[in-house]
């Protein structure tokens, strides 16, 4: 093959592109691959629902409906709770990393997000 006198030949450039693309994909995979959020609903410590799909999810225990969890994109809220003071409803919507607690019904609704910048909240 005739030497062109240039620093890189076309195959050198192709190999470099492949190497850098691979490294970039590796970084992206580890940085963003686990980023999708989901909601987790537990009653008295037992997980009864785990989903990333939007929708309205009634929480029913022993045939009794306690409340409904509404997931809408990056927000989740509680509605139609049977608790007297409705503090869980009054908390409004929470986003990734947020938690809604209904003490009388012993229900915890968590918006789990693996890239949370905060480990735990004091409240």
């Amino acid at each position: 093959m005739k030497r062109t006198g240039n620093l890189f030949r076309i195959w050198d450039i192709a190999i470099l592109v492949v190497i850098f693309s691979t490294v970039a994909m590796f970084f992206c995979f580890h940085t963003y691959g686990e980023g999708s959020g989901y909601i987790e609903v537990s009653v008295n410590g037992e997980v009864v629902l785990k989903t990333s799909a939007d929708g309205v999810y009634p929480v029913v225990v022993n045939g009794k409906r306690l409340l409904s969890v509404v997931k809408d994109g990056e927000k989740v809220r509680v509605e139609d709770s049977t608790c007297p003071l409705k503090i869980c409803e009054k908390m409004g919507t929470v986003g990734p990393g947020g938690v809604i607690i209904c003490v009388p019904n012993k229900v915890v609704v968590k918006f789990v997000h693996t890239n949370e910048s905060v480990d735990v909240m004091t409240w």
Binding site: M91, T93, V94, G95, G98, S117, V118, V120, M121, T122
Partner: peptide
Amino acid sequence: PWVIGIRDPDDTNEC
């Protein structure tokens, strides 16, 4: 260290 957010009393989503 653990990162602990102090909840905003007026907004559950904020610290």
